[in-house]
């Protein structure tokens, strides 16, 4: 199954362009981060000091999940457009097999995200703050939580792709939901409920750096701790993929 998915992906230039863009944007963002000035003080190389670097990087990378999501939407809606889902079912693949194939692709994309964050982190850690490298392993779990978050955004993207079938509509729905619709819904929902919304749960996995400091100013955040959010995120991921399967199973191809 994975081999068939790789046969589709590896020769596809769009995939490489988006993956390259992801790593370039992430590295670029991190590279200029050190020269940002706040209150007349430059962050400088302290920004790249372990162990805090991993959670900072995970937070920055969380913004680029949308790129991975858009890539998965392209890969899913392409199959509707080219009628290749239909042909694969004719040729002997089950509907569950089609969804599992894309689930495997989302796993690969999340793994790519994790490796990219690790690679970018190690590069900047070694070059800008080499004396802290000894502490690199202490908080590397933050990158794994970022991986779960990437899987979460990819599960939303997959559901939208399977549901809407057309790339333009699916991009719009994905971005609108993640950036506008759910935040608006959360505004009108009590705090003790809104922290369980899916995108909020996913975002809780990579909290804003310095959140503790912010809490002292604005009051405690309603968000769950990353370790509390992780099992719920996995439940949402399973739910979204199950819904994707149901959508595909109950429709004509």
């Amino acid at each position: 199954m994975l081999r068939a998915e790789l046969r589709k992906i590896l020769p596809y230039r769009t995939v490489w362009v988006i993956l390259l863009l992801y790593v370039l944007l992430l590295a670029g963002f991190v590279a200029v981060g050190g020269s940002v000035t706040v209150n007349g003080q430059q962050f400088g190389d302290t920004l790249y000091a372990f162990p805090a670097l991993w959670s900072r990087l995970a937070y920055v990378a969380s913004y680029f999940n949308l790129l991975l999501g858009i890539l998965l939407i392209i890969l899913i809606t392409d199959e509707f457009q080219f009628r290749t889902f239909r042909q694969q079912v004719i040729d002997g693949r089950s509907v569950a097999g089609l969804v599992q194939g894309k689930l495997a692709v989302s796993g690969l994309l999340a793994l790519y995200g994790v490796l990219a964050v690790l690679g970018v982190g190690l590069f900047f850690g070694f070059t800008r703050s080499p004396d802290t490298v000894g502490r690199a392993a202490e908080t590397v779990g933050a990158v794994l939580l970022y991986g779960v978050q990437a899987l979460g955004y990819l599960a939303v993207a997959a559901l939208v792709g399977f549901l809407l079938r057309k790339s333009g509509l699916a991009f719009l729905a994905f971005l609108l939901y993640a950036w506008i619709l759910e935040p608006l819904l959360r505004l009108t929902t009590p705090d003790d409920i809104d922290r369980y919304f899916p995108v909020k749960i996913f975002d809780s996995l990579t909290p804003t750096p310095g959140q503790e400091l912010l809490n002292t100013v604005t009051g405690p955040s309603s968000a769950l701790l990353p370790t509390e959010a992780a099992p719920l995120a996995l439940v949402y991921i399973a739910l979204f993929w199950a819904l994707s399967y149901l959508v595909l199973r109950n429709r004509d191809l």
Binding site: R3, A4, R7, K8, P11, Y12, F82, R86, Q87, D91
Partner: peptide, 19 residues
Amino acid sequence: NFFPYLSARQNLLLAADVK
């Protein structure tokens, strides 16, 4: 029904995998 960006050979290899 084939992937337009794949070659004839790549498309058939994919179909052979599925079959």
